[in-house]
Computed example of a mutant assay.
Amino acid sequence: MPVIIDYGIHLLPIAILILLPATILITYSIAVSLKHVTPTGLPYISDTGTFSPESCIFGQLLNMIGFLIAIFVHTRYNQVKIFNKILNQRSKIYCDRLNLLSLVSGIMSALGLSLVANFQETNVIIIHVIGAYLIFGIGAFYLILQTYFTYKLHIVNSIYIKTSRVIANIIICLSFVLVILGAILAGRNPLELPAHHKWTPGSKGYRWHVISALSEWALAFAFLLYMGSFVSEFRALEWDFPQIKIRIEYEPLLYVGTLNINQPRSEPEYSNDYQNIGGDPFLANKINHVV
């Protein structure tokens, strides 16, 4: 018997939204209580999960979150694939290639989270740094592609969601640059052991460290802001295991030209010109697609 998840995929980004802040809060609290980091020194996120026992919790929960992100990336890939197949006839091949690139970059970002979780900076610093660059660098590229698909394929009609994704992209890119620049100017060499975990206001390069660490925290929560924007969008999706069947319920759109969703596929006529008209119910359509 196939297992059907009926309109519950929106719980996936919600789970990530809950688990990631909870992981950071738990490991930060333990690290401060055991004096592994100093709160006045504003540690990097990974500093709060470097030493035992908080490193065990940090690793376990980040592995789970990385797995959920990989599922999210795969689901989003299929969603974009469906929209591109049905609505985007002018640049379909180009978007398909970008969508495949986004799948690869998204999986790499999820893998980076697992690397950061399992290779602490005091143990295998090079792998830890590579994982961090995969999360934030490749992850930023992945989200830029998702913003492009949002506008190109009109997957969502809400101007607030579209705007929030653009703002999150800007914050992520700027924060990523400030994390690296601040760490360099603070005099912290990420390949030197042991890493500097206990910063104080009197430490050399303290101000630049604060800028770098604040930027990393802003970067992480901007990722969460972007992830949260998918909750309402994923409410229209459905899974049917072992086969992945994604049913997309379109929000009302005004299609200018010859686009007719209900027209037989043997004689398709499409126009790529369409726009949101804000909820006219007679234009609502539901399309089933099996991946």
Rank of each mutant, 00 (worst) to 15 (best):
L253E: 02
S266I: 11
S229M: 09
V166Y: 02
Q263C: 06
G8A: 10
L219E: 00
I161H: 08
R76M: 14
P43L: 06
L225I: 12
G257W: 00
K245L: 07
Y142R: 07
I125M: 13
Y270M: 14
L145C: 11
I45R: 07
K286Q: 08
S271L: 07
A110G: 05
I65T: 09
F230L: 07
I126A: 11
A213F: 00
V179G: 01
I45V: 12
F119N: 06
S109N: 15
I172F: 00
L259F: 15
N123C: 11
E216Q: 13
I5T: 07
I161W: 04
V256P: 00
Y250H: 14
Y94I: 11
H197C: 14
S102T: 09
G187E: 06
S232L: 13
C95L: 13
H289Q: 08
I248D: 05
I26G: 06
L237E: 01
N99G: 05
V104M: 11
L224I: 09
S105V: 15
S55M: 03
D6V: 10
I5D: 03
K204W: 10
T147S: 15
D240F: 03
H209F: 02
K92S: 11
V3N: 10
T147H: 11
L61Y: 10
P190T: 03
N78A: 10
Y28M: 10
T27I: 05
G131R: 01
N272T: 13
Y77R: 07
F282S: 14
M108A: 13
I261D: 00
T147M: 10
Y148C: 05
G139L: 02
S102P: 05
I82R: 02
T50Q: 02
G8H: 08
T38R: 15
E192W: 08
